[in-house]
């Protein structure tokens, strides 16, 4: 949330267009953590997330003139770029993760209770990472980044109804993956 005393995003974009270095730096510091967390959740890799942050802001630097504040908020615009990059990069990153690197976790009868501890947050993150991208991204945007449906729809370039249905379906899939099944460890099940 922007402080009332601080310059707004459109004002900073305008100043950056005029070549003001500090304005661009201010925009970066205001939004980079959100883009980073989104990219990290999408790809599961801190290093790749940093690459994405850099590429997102390089794209903004390059196309400052193209950004139209009347069409979308700057963060929404940045998430849109990050989303495309993350989807592209996630494919190559996933190929590098083997099952050997996956930590075994204990089974819980009740999936809700299983989510209480920090270790379970890791499991949740892993299961989330195993969802198909179209469901994963909508959960990350709505439930982790707390964007509203309209902003999420703008990031994904889909109707709001699609956001709602994907969110519902994605949550169901996530719950399904968190439930114990057939004696197969959840950690491995999440990667299937």
């Amino acid at each position: 949330m922007e402080d009332a005393a601080e310059p707004s995003d459109p004002e900073l974009v305008e100043r950056a267009r005029g070549g003001e270095r500090e304005a661009f730096g201010f925009l970066y510091r205001r939004h980079q953590a959100y883009v980073y967390r989104f990219a990290r959740a999408m790809t599961g890799s801190s290093a790749v997330a940093e690459d994405i942050v850099q590429e997102v802001f390089l794209a903004l630097m390059r196309d400052l003139e193209r950004y139209d504040a009347t069409r979308a908020g700057l963060r929404t615009y940045l998430f849109g770029i990050a989303r495309n990059l993350a989807r592209y990069k996630a494919r190559s990153v996933r190929r590098l993760i083997s099952l050997d690197q996956v930590e075994e976790v204990s089974e819980f009868e009740d999936p809700a209770a299983a989510l209480s501890a920090s270790q379970e947050s890791r499991r949740l993150r892993r299961c989330l990472a195993g969802l198909p991208a179209r469901y994963r991204e909508v959960i990350i945007l709505c439930d982790l980044q707390e964007l509203d449906y309209a902003a999420t729809a703008a990031v994904l370039s889909v109707p709001i109804g699609t956001v709602r249905s994907r969110l519902h379906r994605g949550r169901q899939m996530l719950l399904e993956r968190l439930r114990p099944r057939d004696g197969l460890p959840v950690a491995k099940r999440c990667l299937i």
Partner: peptide, 11 residues
């Protein structure tokens, strides 16, 4: 609900 609460905790 529990899932949403867990996702908030993760956030």
């Amino acid at each position: 609900k529990e899932l949403l609460s867990a996702l908030k905790a993760l956030a």
